[in-house]
Design a protein around this nucleic acid. Sequence first.
DNA 1: CAAGAGTGAATGAACATTCATTCACCTGTC
DNA 2: GACAGGTGAATGAATGTTCATTCACTCTTG
Lengths: 205, 205
Amino acid sequence: MDAIVNDKRERILAAASDLIVKNGLQCSMAEIAQTAGVATGTLYIYFSSKEEMVRGVYQRLTAKVGASLIVEHGPDVSHEARVRRYIDDYIGLIWADPARAILFEYLSNVPLLPPGELRRLFAPVTDFTAKVFTEARAAGVLRDFDPNVMGAYVGGGIRNTLKWRRANGSPLTEAEHRQIAEMCWSAIAGNTQEQALPGVADRQS
Amino acid sequence: MDAIVNDKRERILAAASDLIVKNGLQCSMAEIAQTAGVATGTLYIYFSSKEEMVRGVYQRLTAKVGASLIVEHGPDVSHEARVRRYIDDYIGLIWADPARAILFEYLSNVPLLPPGELRRLFAPVTDFTAKVFTEARAAGVLRDFDPNVMGAYVGGGIRNTLKWRRANGSPLTEAEHRQIAEMCWSAIAGNTQEQALPGVADRQS
DNA sequence: CAAGAGTGAATGAACATTCATTCACCTGTC
DNA sequence: GACAGGTGAATGAATGTTCATTCACTCTTG
């Protein structure tokens, strides 16, 4: 019962996601229903309108992003390691599923969803990012810039780099992954030269 | 005669740009025509279809971007200065006109314009970026990464940072501008340590 | 210079199509 | 048989595109 309800809702959102990636928001409700294997009218049982269904698609997306980025850190994990972990997870997340990345980029720039609403739906992720960056900054690990600015810079850089890279068709090598992470870290790392920590992996020439 | 023709085409593209920013690609041809002060049928004199008109809008955009970023450098301008100038121009360009930035971001992610076509239309700008970065890298000023990767990273970082920043409503201070430029430079600057400048404030934890 | 003929950009009402939304009717379950 | 979830054809509004018509302007001719 409840499982079926959720299953249908999930299938509708998955179908809508696919078609939005392919054709944008002009994809028809009939096509979405057909892809999901339900009748047109069923869409309106789960969502009051197309616009609200799109909101559901975006929300589903933020949930997955949050699941990939938000992690609990034990007290033994250094701030630098937390930030580096965040960067790695972000790169992995964006590269792992091209369709998801395209959908995210598209919906984030569509006039239908105003910026204020996007920020509200995305709050769990941005809050986590702000927390990690703020604490790292307080520990002197990051620059003395606004943590939100640093978060936005790193995220935008990663997404745009991988978007360009995706067009190439070839897989992302481990070396490239490391290069991008290095750019991210250099952009926001604090000026305090404590990188000469004993035991911590140091950057090769 | 010719001036009038260009004037009308220009007015149509300007109207379309405005309405796309406001309502996305669903804006109607009738509305665009009305905003431009012409009849509906006139649109089809200058463009064979709505899709081609959108292409025209994007092309008009790339022309403006190119005009802001592409500069001739004399032989006395150092490679570092060229890259820093590029970063500054990019920040200025994106911040100067919010509507233009939104339009650019939206059209760059719309399924109607496939990535291959976007790259083709944007080639003059990316070619210039690649040239500046490639030469700077050859001079040892930049990291030994793919110049296109570095260009994409910096551009994406700037655009996303300013997009987030724009939502705040407050103007961009000179200090913020410098901070963003610093993140860009640090991300791509070569490892050759000529930045060990004396007098730089460093805070030790 | 005057007048007639020609040109093609501009127009906007009409057309065909597409599409979000609705609702009368199923179908399985208790 | 009552009820809830599900269905898909019907509907009416919206929209991209067309095209017969207008008209300001230019060219030709007497």
